[in-house]
Simulated scan of single mutants.
Amino acid sequence: MSVSLIVLIVIVLLVVLLVIWGIGAYNGLVNLRNRVANGWAQIDVQLKQRADLVPNLVQTVKGYASHESTVLEEVTKARADVAQAQAAGGDRMQARADAEQRLGQSLVTLMARAEAYPELKANQNFLDLQRQLKDLEDKIAYARQFYNDVVQKFNTRIETVPSNIIASLFHFRQAQYFQADEGSRQAPVVDFGQ
């Protein structure tokens, strides 16, 4: 066997190994990108369930605390903002996250105001809705954590050598974290004197 044949075999082997590595890196990035999309879809399902629960909750509270119209209007407006952000779709994840945070805050305020109405707190429908809302909030928190964990893995893979080469060649872009806006990190103010 000649030296040139050995060199040719080594070069072919290196090219084959490089192609196999490239395919593996690409498939890994696609897998993570799909997990990011799935994570967002799971958040979306839980958020839609919460939005569907809001009208029933508002109607129940309205029957017992009709003079809390400001709080009820805030919840209704926040739900409408969520629907609008959802309809916008596309790359508007931060707008959706902000709208969802406002809805969450208005629900916390509504639930806190409901504490002032013993008849409401004893209402079985209200108690069921409250339990469902708590369960959904727990699921949303878990789904957000899962989503952000997958986004972190995906973004790390895009930025690290050598997979960043494949990411650059095939135009993989970083995913956005699901973050709370600055205003939602503060506890809502509940004034029972209104």
Rank of each mutant, 00 (worst) to 15 (best):
S2C: 06
V3C: 09
V10N: 01
I11T: 15
I11G: 12
V12A: 10
L14D: 06
L14I: 13
W21L: 02
G22T: 00
I23H: 03
I23K: 04
N27M: 08
V30F: 00
G39N: 07
A41W: 10
Q42H: 11
I43L: 14
V45Y: 03
D52Q: 04
P55C: 08
P55L: 08
P55F: 03
N56W: 04
N56T: 07
S69D: 10
T70Y: 01
L72P: 02
E74T: 02
A80T: 11
A85R: 02
A85D: 05
Q86R: 13
Q86K: 13
A87I: 14
A99G: 06
R102W: 01
L103A: 05
S106T: 11
S106A: 08
V108F: 02
T109G: 02
T109K: 15
L110K: 06
R113A: 08
E115R: 08
L120E: 04
L120K: 03
N123Q: 05
N123P: 01
N125Y: 09
F126Y: 08
Q130S: 15
Q130W: 04
Q132N: 14
Q132I: 07
L133M: 11
K134A: 13
E137D: 14
D138S: 15
K139V: 09
A143S: 15
A143M: 12
Y147N: 15
N148I: 12
V151Y: 05
N155P: 03
V161H: 07
R173H: 12
Q174Y: 07
A175D: 10
Q176E: 15
Y177T: 08
Y177N: 12
F178K: 13
A180K: 14
D181E: 07
E182G: 11
A187T: 10
D191I: 04
Q194L: 04
